[in-house]
């Protein structure tokens, strides 16, 4: 049985690479992975998000995130017609278990906004780190070196999107790694893998065959808080002006 599975895996190089290292027990970065060939980002389609919370649970599972802390979370906006700038927003436990139902005929517009690290290319968080414990990797992912971080929390303050926190046990800054341990092995992120509607799509901007390029040609996308000029790489389709 093992043998036949292996034979099948050979047909699927991406999974095969991942597999070799999972099986070895001490997985490491794929030897075939070239950092210089990628520039990672994320496409988030608000028109597709149903607020099921699968991404939040998957992220917490995949990355061992303690309860009450979020590398990704989902917000539900309620924008009434009279208070465009003042939406009512909820995110119970980060949207982990979904959201309460809204009866038909309620006034105003409802929509879900998944949030995560924007992996900014001019990231204010890496700018302020006093020791170089957080950085933009050559493939465009904002990462934290947990063995070097002082836990000063300056980066937590510097992130305009609230994506960082201090890990309660490790006492270092923590946030989304864009599942760096997965994307370097040809897999997609845990949140994208678990998203049932395709509201999240991992995007490799350097790969000319990535579907992101076709999508960007035909859609108007926006990033969060563009006035912050952070070079955010989480692109939102269908982003309402009231989202902050």
């Amino acid at each position: 049985m093992n043998i036949s599975r292996r034979q099948l895996l050979i047909l699927l190089p991406a999974a095969a690479v991942a597999w070799k290292y999972v099986e070895a027990g001490t997985p490491e970065a794929s030897p075939n992975y070239e950092m210089s060939e990628h520039w990672w980002g994320m496409l988030i389609d608000i028109t597709k998000c149903i607020g099921c919370g699968n991404c939040v649970r998957a992220c917490q599972k995949e990355n061992d995130i303690p309860d009450g802390y979020f590398r990704t979370w989902v917000e539900r906006y309620h924008r009434t017609d009279y208070h465009l700038e003042n939406p009512e927003v909820i995110s119970p436990d980060g949207g982990k278990e979904g959201f309460p139902s809204v009866p038909e005929g309620t006034q105003g517009d409802y929509f879900f906004v998944p949030k995560m690290c924007n992996h900014c290319s001019d990231s204010p968080c890496t700018q302020v780190c006093p020791v170089g414990a957080t950085f933009i990797s050559p493939d465009g992912v904002v990462l934290i070196d947990p063995k070097y971080c002082l836990g000063c929390a300056y980066c937590v303050q510097a992130c305009p999107y609230g994506c960082r926190y201090i890990h309660p046990e490790k006492k270092v800054a923590d946030k989304c790694t864009l599942c760096y341990h997965r994307i370097t092995k040809g897999l997609t992120t845990a949140c994208c893998e678990a998203c049932p509607t395709g509201a999240r799509q991992l995007a490799d901007l350097k790969n000319p065959n990535d579907p992101i390029h076709a999508f960007l040609k035909t859609h108007t996308v926006q990033v969060l808080k563009p006035q912050m000029a952070t070079g955010a790489k989480a692109f939102y389709n269908g982003l309402d002006g009231s989202v902050r």
Partner: peptide, 28 residues
Amino acid sequence: PLQFHLGHPERSYEMYFTPHATSAMAMF
């Protein structure tokens, strides 16, 4: 107070050895 606040005060020497040029705090 800074030392008490740091999650890893034992690493604070890093501020001297690898100060990050773009960080105001590194200058401390």
